[in-house]
Amino acid sequence: MNILEQEFIKGFMRMCSDGFMQGWHERNGGNLSYRMKEQEVQSIQSAFSYQRAWTDIGTEVLNLANEYFLVTGSGKYFRNVELNPEANIGIVEIDATGTQYRVVWGLINGAVPTSELPTHLMNHAVKKMTTNNLHRVIYHCHTTNVIALTFVLPLKDEIFTRELWEMATECPVVFPSGVGVVPWMVPGGKDIAVATSEKMHNYDVAIWAHHGIFCSGIDFDATFGLAHTVEKSAEILVKMLSMTPHKLQTITPAQFCHLAKEFHVSLPEKFLYEK
């Protein structure tokens, strides 16, 4: 069976292309990973090679032991994924201890997974646990307007959440738990992985100050849609702030509560009232 004809592979490649077309993946910016389902692994496992060496992850993700992930490559360009999948993406296996990985398909010519792999895996571990195994996609992209806001808004969960919720009525429905904010940190290391995974216990979106966003979802559509909604709301806020620093009218706490009731979502009270 042709690996590239698998629906999850095609969905992964489409998301890479969609993100690039939005302008969120300049050069080799951003990364994407997908925790494969058991039946997906079984359907293509005959095409895997187990010749490449095990490599330390740099952290321990025991609840991901023996799982397989489709990931983008380090230094690879999202715009090239559809043109040459095997050179730009690959499948990695996690060992029984949750401390090592090895490439079993793709990432040819010595390519390696994204440098953000530890962050992706730590957050997959958290979301697997907190969503009862439902979330399978982790996505990092350089959303222009969100990044711009991290220079002018206080880096606080409550402020970012409230401002983004106010800009578009759908936002409290799409991300009712809010967004977390991680202060600027060097990417690719354990510190940012730990800080992000702490936010992901409570949120599906973490904003990386001066860098971009980190999203989790059940599938490619939900995860891309989440990132798209957050960035669209940020774009509206940037435009509003360019016209005036003061809102003449907005959505009130009582209206948020009415919206939540109608759409059967729960909105944390800490985000409803300005601090």
Rank of each mutant, 00 (worst) to 15 (best):
V179Y: 05
N84Q: 13
G188L: 09
F160M: 03
V179T: 06
Q22R: 15
E163C: 08
W54D: 10
E116R: 10
D221Q: 01
N202V: 01
F151S: 13
K232E: 12
G212F: 01
N145M: 08
W24L: 06
S46Y: 07
E198W: 02
P113G: 06
E5P: 00
V173A: 04
P176H: 07
N132V: 10
F20N: 13
E82M: 12
V179K: 03
A168R: 09
E67N: 14
F175Q: 13
Y77C: 09
I207Q: 03
I236D: 05
G110A: 07
T169V: 14
Y203V: 00
F220W: 04
P154Y: 08
L134T: 14
C257W: 07
V173Y: 10
Y273L: 04
H201E: 11
E198Q: 12
L226P: 00
E235S: 11
G110T: 04
H140N: 04
S33Y: 06
E269N: 09
V137E: 08
F78T: 11
A168S: 09
R79F: 11
F256N: 09
L267G: 07
C16I: 02
Y50E: 14
I192M: 10
T131R: 06
P183Y: 02
T119M: 12
P118N: 05
E170Q: 10
S46E: 15
S46C: 10
P118K: 06
T150F: 00
E38L: 13
G58H: 12
K270F: 05
F214S: 00
T223C: 02
K239N: 14
D56I: 11
E7K: 15
G212W: 02
C16P: 04
